[in-house]
């Protein structure tokens, strides 16, 4: 499962790529693979204020809908408009072209609540180990 070394992660399978005061947010390979073909992305409103780990927006795949939570608190400064016409961009390139929103970070200390790439990788392994009897996720 692909993980980008310098990104930070949540246990809900979002990533954030921090560049100065702005964090770019998306969902991980694990999340896009679990969701399957993504058919709709509700883009957050520009200038929306979000809190860390609170609902940022939602995605839909053919048969289900899922909330996306913000890895950081701040203000939405840009959204990826391309996802409106081509939500499958997230399936094809979840870490680059399939980004969802850029957020101006209001509290840099919050990054200590996030997982590093190594920690996230270990977390995924622990999920695999507990995955004996999977039941429906929809």
């Amino acid at each position: 499962m692909e993980i980008i070394d310098h990104y930070l992660y949540t246990k809900e399978h979002e990533w954030v790529d921090i560049d100065g005061k702005v964090g770019t947010v998306g969902i991980t390979e694990y999340a896009q693979s679990a969701l399957g073909d993504i058919t709709f992305v509700e883009l957050p409103g520009s200038a929306d204020e979000v809190e860390q780990f609170e609902r940022l927006t939602s995605l839909e795949s053919v048969k289900s809908a899922s909330d996306i939570f913000s890895p950081i608190s701040g203000k939405v400064v840009e959204v990826n408009d391309k996802l409106t016409q081509d939500p499958g961009l997230i399936n094809r390139d979840c870490y680059e072209k399939g980004w969802i929103a850029k957020i101006k970070i209001s509290d840099e200390d919050e990054t200590s609540n996030l997982l590093t790439a190594d920690e996230y990788s270990n977390y995924l392994e622990s999920l695999d180990r507990n995955d004996g009897g999977e039941s429906a996720d929809e």
Binding site: G36, D37, S61, V62, K63, G88, E134, S135, A136, E138
Partner: peptide
């Protein structure tokens, strides 16, 4: 296949290529 519980059965909800 991704397996799910359907009506008391373990059934394939989709295979690797995806629903589309």
């Amino acid at each position: 296949a991704k397996m799910v519980d359907f009506a008391g059965w373990q059934m394939p909800v989709q295979y690797q290529e995806g629903i589309l």
